[in-house]
Simulated assay, not measured.
Amino acid sequence: MRSLLLTAFSLVFLLSCHTVQLNKATGKWIPLFNGTDIKDWIVKIHHYECGENFGNTFRVEDGIIKVRYDQYGPFNDRFGHLYYKVPFSYYHLKFEYRFVGELQQGAPGYTLLNSGVMFHSQDPRTMPKEQDWPISIEMQLLGGLGDGKPRTTGNMCSPGTNIVYKGVFDERHCIDSSSKTYDGDQWVQGELIVLGDSLITHKINGETVMQYSKPQIGGDVVNRYDPKIKIDGTALKSGFIALQSEGQPVDFRNVEIMVLPPKK
């Protein structure tokens, strides 16, 4: 027992030191993805324990985080997320993404050319094995379907959460942004500017496409969570950042963050 306690203490201490180092780097761009491996990230996939990267879902090749399902067979609702190891509160996040390949057999139709970046998320280590989505806010990423119809990206979705949008408390699960439609496998740049539980801004290819405020725990969509974690009405002032897998192959690269000074 003593050795377990020491191990737990060591982990907390190391994470705390890493957080302090990042906070000291306020105003500087820091890579979250080193281009080589995902040792600084935590995997949590529905139906599996935290840390189990079933089917090598999240892998690094050619300096890219690749989300793949070639070892799956039927998808079986194996919704997954790759979390950076420490939480953030005030920051500017940049990343690039592109959709590739075909939707995995058995994945829900709505996940076609669909992924996302979760933020202000609960710690993945607090998620039971059968919890499907993290309590979090999502910057939803969508690709055009090539049918000439608009399909915005950089939208807002809210698993187990709510926001204030255009000054009104809004319980909709997803709200469309004002972005353009991006077809094919082109790289698209996303940005998140997060100011604690205050203003949140989504940007796509340098253009602001959505803003909202006061993220908080509430609402549904999340299932089989630990009720001690989901306290509705709790303001979301900080949390983990995660890259999503939900049946569509997708690539991520150039994931970097600038820690911003907290609001006084």
Rank of each mutant, 00 (worst) to 15 (best):
L5S: 15
T7A: 12
S10H: 13
V12Q: 09
L14V: 14
L15K: 13
L15E: 09
S16D: 04
S16Y: 01
S16R: 11
C17K: 13
C17W: 09
C17M: 14
V20F: 05
V20Y: 02
L22Q: 05
N23Y: 05
N23R: 13
K24S: 08
T26E: 15
G27I: 12
G27T: 10
G27F: 02
K28R: 15
I30R: 00
N34S: 07
G35Y: 08
G35N: 13
G35R: 08
I38F: 08
D40H: 06
K44V: 01
I45M: 07
H46D: 10
Y48V: 00
N53A: 02
F54I: 07
G55T: 03
G55Q: 09
T57P: 07
T57E: 04
T57D: 04
R59S: 12
V60P: 05
R68S: 13
D70P: 03
Q71T: 12
P74I: 06
D77C: 10
D77H: 12
R78T: 02
L82I: 12
K85Q: 15
S89P: 09
Y91L: 11
H92E: 15
Y97A: 08
R98T: 01
G106P: 06
A107L: 09
A107G: 06
G109T: 14
Y110W: 15
T111P: 05
L112F: 12
F119R: 05
Q122P: 01
D123T: 03
P128N: 07
E130Y: 02
Q131P: 11
D132W: 14
W133D: 10
P134K: 03
I135L: 11
I137T: 06
E138R: 01
E138L: 06
Q140E: 15
L141E: 13
L145F: 13
L145A: 09
G148H: 09
R151L: 07
T152G: 05
G154P: 02
N155V: 06
N162Y: 04
G167P: 07
F169C: 12
F169K: 13
E171F: 03
E171T: 06
C174A: 05
T181F: 01
T181D: 02
G184R: 01
Q186S: 06
W187I: 00
W187M: 02
Q189K: 10
G190L: 03
D197H: 13
D197Y: 07
L199P: 03
L199M: 09
I200G: 01
T201D: 06
H202Q: 10
V209K: 01
P215A: 04
Q216I: 10
Q216K: 14
D220H: 10
D226E: 14
P227V: 12
K228L: 14
I229A: 14
T234H: 07
G239C: 02
F240C: 03
A242H: 00
A242N: 01
L243H: 03
G247R: 01
G247Q: 03
P249T: 04
F252W: 14
F252Q: 04
F252P: 04
R253Y: 08
V255A: 04
E256S: 10
L260M: 13
K264L: 11
